[in-house]
C-alpha cells in the first residue's frame, strides 16, 4: 500500500525528504556493498517514496549500508541516503530489537577486531 505517512515518519528521523529523488541510480552505481544487497539503494529509496516501508525494513540492504557516503557525495538531488538507511535501521531498533547480539559474535572477531569496529557496529546494529 502506498503511504505518505510512513514516508513522513522516516523524514522525522532522517531529516531527508526522499521525494526529490528521481531514481537515476547513481547511488547504486557507486555502492561498494551493492553486490551483497537484495535491494539496491535507489530501490530502497523508491520504496520509501511509496511509503512501502515494510519491504524496505525487511531488506538486508539497510544492514549492509556501511555509511560510507559515496552515494550522497555524488547524488545529483542532494539526498543523503545513509541518513535514510539509518532511519530504517533505527525504526526497527527503536522497537526494542537488535540486529546483532554481541555475545554471539565469533571469538576471533571479539579478539581481533579493533575497538572502533565494535563500538561502531554496536551503535548501528543494537
Amino acid at each position: 500500500m502506498v503511504s505518505s505517512e510512513n514516508r513522513r515518519k522516516l523524514l522525522d528521523i532522517s531529516g531527508e525528504d526522499v521525494t526529490s529523488c528521481y531514481q537515476c541510480g547513481k547511488c547504486s552505481a557507486g555502492c561498494a556493498m551493492a553486490a551483497m544487497m537484495d535491494l539496491l539503494p535507489h530501490q530502497v529509496i523508491r520504496l520509501v517514496q511509496l511509503g512501502q516501508v515494510e519491504e524496505a525494513l525487511a531488506s538486508r540492504t539497510i544492514w549492509l549500508c556501511a555509511s560510507c557516503l559515496a552515494c550522497s557525495a555524488r547524488c545529483p538531488r542532494g539526498v543523503s541516503l545513509p541518513n535514510v538507511m539509518e532511519s530504517l535501521r533505527v525504526t526497527l531498533l527503536r522497537l526494542g530489537g537488535r540486529h546483532l547480539d554481541p555475545v554471539r559474535l565469533p571469538a576471533d572477531v571479539l579478539e581481533n577486531a579493533p575497538e572502533q569496529a565494535l563500538v561502531a557496529g554496536l551503535r548501528k546494529y543494537t
Binding site: C24, G25, K26, A29, G30, C71, R74
Partner: peptide, 20 residues
C-alpha cells in the same frame, strides 16, 4: 541509470553504472 564512477584500468576504462 547514471554512472557513479569511471576509472582507468590498464588500457581500458572501468565504468560503474546501474540499470535501474
Amino acid at each position: 541509470g547514471r554512472v557513479a564512477r569511471v576509472f582507468q584500468d590498464g588500457d581500458r576504462l572501468v565504468v560503474f553504472g546501474v540499470d535501474t
